[in-house]
Structure formats: structure tokens, C-alpha cells
Amino acid sequence: MDHVISVRDLRVLDGKKTLVGPVTFDLKQGSTTGLCGPSGAGKSTVLRALVDLLPHGLVRDGHLEVLGRPFRHGKGDSGLRSTVVLVPQTPVVFGGSILDNALFGLRHLVRASRSDLNDRVEQALKEAGLWNEVCNRLDTPAQSLSNGQRQRLCLARALALEPAALLLDEPTSALDERSRDTVEASVAALRGNRTVLLVSHDPAQVERLCDRTVRLELPETLTCSPAAAA
């Protein structure tokens, strides 16, 4: 299947008022697509609409297909949450060890032996570029990690679910330059292997990491173009 996600005329509504959209785009298998635009255009809102995590009172309208299957707003389909996974802007680290954090989603959504789960976590940590830094201290508190390491831990937690698509919401905006470069390297390594939708306020970052861009404007318009680096 060429398109992992197909979005047609997606809007986010507050009652009868349109806050975002209409938006139409496709995410191709193995592609990294940048979603960019000015502050207030609704980039993060689009991501949350795709996984039914909109704030109370807002609804998604339009057509959404994931792997050829239509999803309607508010149907409570847990399959969507494990198929399309959102990694938020601020890394969410729970109390407990690094391993506990990496296993969090798997424990809730996947039936497998502890050994199999640990193997999936190890692979995910490697894919996120964090394994070599934590492999000898998986039992230490996750709170001991730096901000950049926490962001990569959240990325690994998502990757362990083996999702069809990853939604990354400003993954480097709260990081210093060195941590930003490390997280960018992890995202760049996914290119061609994972389907990624990346929200960024930084056009240069989108150019570095993405195959194409979807640009949201404050008026209800949408333009798509190849990234300069593609």
C-alpha cells in the first residue's frame, strides 16, 4: 500500500466554527513529511485530530484513512492509537526506570512474553539512537535522563509499538543545540524506514529532514511542495 495515511478535507470544528482546515494530504510509506506554517495555523491541532486527542469540545470532520481503513471521530478505536502514534513536544517521562518507561505502551497494548517485550524495547532504543547511552542502566530512574535523552526515550516508546506512522510535534523545540542535533540525527535515521509526519516551526529543519512539506496558512489554504533537500 502506497499511502499509509490519507486525509481528505479534514477540518477541526468548535461547534459550527472551523478552526483548522480544510486540509488534504497523503503520507506515503517510508516518507518523512513536514507540516509547517505560522504560529496559530493549527499544526499541532492537526496531529491531535489524526489520533482523536483533540481538547474537549473540538471535533474532527472530513475523511481519514489509515492503511486503507476509514476512521471516524470519537469511535474510541484503540487500534488507531497503536497504529498512528503521537510523540508530543514536551517529553512525557513517568516515574520508574528507563526500562519501565520504554515498556509503557507495549504493556498496555501488546500481548507477549516479557522476553519478547524486552527485545522490542531494545530494538526501539537502538532505532531511536539511545541504546548505547542507557543499555547498562536500564533500571535507573528515567528522571535522571537529560532533556534530549528523554525525547529519544519517548521516540523509542512509540517505535516499540511498531506503528504505521509516527507524528512528531516539535520534537526539538525545547532542546539546546547539542540535544537538538542528537534528536535530529535519530529522526533522520528513520527516513525511508518509517512513515513520519513532523511538525516544526523551523523551515531549515524541515528541509534537512523531510521529503516534502505540507504548509498550513492562517487563511484556509494549503500548499504542498517537495522539500529542497529531496
Rank of each mutant, 00 (worst) to 15 (best):
Trp131Asp: 03
Val92Asp: 01
Ser78Cys: 12
Leu86Tyr: 11
Gly148Asn: 01
Arg150Trp: 02
Val87Glu: 10
Gly74His: 06
Pro88Lys: 15
Leu99Ala: 07
His108Ser: 14
Ser115Lys: 15
Asn101Ala: 04
Leu159Tyr: 10
Leu145Gly: 02
Cys154Asn: 10
Arg152Gln: 09
Val84Ile: 04
Pro91Val: 14
Val87Gln: 05
Val134Ile: 14
Ala142Phe: 02
Ala160Asn: 08
Cys135Leu: 05
Val110Arg: 13
Leu103Met: 09
Val93Arg: 11
Val85Ser: 06
Phe94Ala: 11
Glu122Val: 14
Asn147Thr: 04
Lys75Val: 11
Arg150Ser: 07
Val110Trp: 06
Pro91Ser: 15
Leu155Ala: 04
Pro70Phe: 14
Asn132Glu: 15
Ser146Trp: 03
Leu86Phe: 10
Leu80Ala: 06
Ser78Trp: 13
Phe71Asn: 00
Cys154Ile: 05
Leu155Met: 03
Cys135Pro: 00
Thr140His: 09
Val84Ala: 07
Arg157Tyr: 11
Gln149Arg: 03
Val85His: 06
Arg72Cys: 05
Thr90Gln: 09
Gln123Asp: 14
Asn101Arg: 04
Phe94Pro: 02
Gly129Arg: 03
Leu153Ala: 08
Asn118Trp: 04
Val110Cys: 03
Trp131Gly: 08
Arg137Ser: 05
Asp139Cys: 06
Ala128Lys: 10
